[in-house]
């Protein structure tokens, strides 16, 4: 479990990193926290000619509260920073909760949001969160910057639309309606593992009816996704056992779960529906001020 040989470039600015990537003609890889990349190198699943280390790019490590009530997050922000950020807890409590499920302390101290999004594991929390929260991702390349909607960024399991000489730099989260209710549930066999499935819901209660509903799931498809039919099943009426059941059914109908050693597609489909139900109940309880009952 030793990596194959590579050369090492320590970048100190975005421009330097992009130049180094371009100079290696697609044979270089960015290394951020290294928590996903280094295992792949040690398993010899990857053999890049060069690693471009972005840990020295200070300008990519920030969490800024924006005037509109949203957040801008630098790609090098560590998981631990998001987990403990008061701005995240206040503006996007669903994200704060999701971070509690990302790996273990030692990994959270190194792993970065940019790394997690670029790695695009189907069962990773951050890709699901940027999908749920309609984030805009800023990417720098040799030709300058471009902006991508989160929904357009992921392109299948472990795949994104990033070009080999592009660097993800910033994640912008537009504001959520305040106050709002939220719910997040996931299941993994062991604490800190990638989840077998997870569900997240954000909504508001407008005159007793569910509104502004966002519902996303992960672990049950190549990429995390919002389930429009499930959102529609909830909007415009009070959340009830019936609407919850309808939303869960819509999710089970929409997803195409993978099979692996830890769970069959049938089980995952069942599981994600159950998690969706729990997430909706929590979100509704919070939105209607009955959060005491929410887990």
């Amino acid at each position: 479990m030793k990596p194959p040989p590579f050369t090492y470039v320590a970048a100190t600015s975005v421009a330097e990193a992009v130049a180094a990537l371009a100079a290696h003609d697609g044979e270089a890889k960015v290394i951020a926290g290294g928590q996903s990349l280094v295992p792949m190198l040690n398993f010899r699943l990857l053999a890049p000619a060069a690693l471009v280390d972005i840990n020295g790019i200070r300008e990519l490590d920030f969490v800024d509260a924006t005037a509109d009530g949203g957040l801008r997050i630098g790609a090098l922000t560590r998981h631990y920073t998001l987990l403990t950020s008061p701005d995240v807890a206040e503006r996007f409590p669903v994200l704060g909760e999701a971070m509690r499920h990302v790996a273990h302390l030692a990994i959270r101290n190194r792993g970065t949001i940019g790394g997690s999004l670029s790695h695009a594991d189907p069962a990773a929390e951050l890709p699901m969160m940027v999908t749920l929260l309609d984030a805009t991702l800023t990417v720098a390349g040799p030709g300058g910057e471009r902006q991508l909607a989160a929904a357009d960024f992921f392109d299948g399991a472990l795949t994104t639309v990033l070009a080999e000489d592009e660097l993800l730099t910033t994640i912008t989260l537009p504001p959520l309606p305040q106050p709002h209710g939220w719910g997040f549930h996931e299941f993994a066999q062991r604490a800190g593992d990638f989840a077998l499935a997870a569900a997240a819901v954000v909504l508001t209660a407008d005159d007793g009816a569910a509104a502004n509903v966002r519902l996303a799931v992960m672990g049950v498809d190549e990429n995390p996704s919002r389930i429009a039919a499930a959102e529609a099943a909830l909007v415009g009426q009070p959340v009830s056992d019936d609407t919850i059941a309808a939303a869960a059914a819509a999710v089970r109908e929409a997803v195409d779960p993978p099979e692996d050693l830890h769970g069959s597609a049938t089980y995952r489909r069942h599981l994600v529906g159950g998690l969706v139900e729990r997430a909706i109940r929590d979100a509704w309880a919070r939105a209607t001020g009955n959060a005491g009952g929410a887990a």
Partner: peptide, 23 residues
């Protein structure tokens, strides 16, 4: 876990799941 060809499918500690302190 082995498949019927005798290939080991649990070749890392991601798939061979040991209990951690939490469990």
């Amino acid at each position: 876990i082995h498949d019927e060809d005798g290939q080991i499918l649990t070749a890392s500690l991601v798939d061979y799941v040991l209990p951690s302190a939490v469990e």
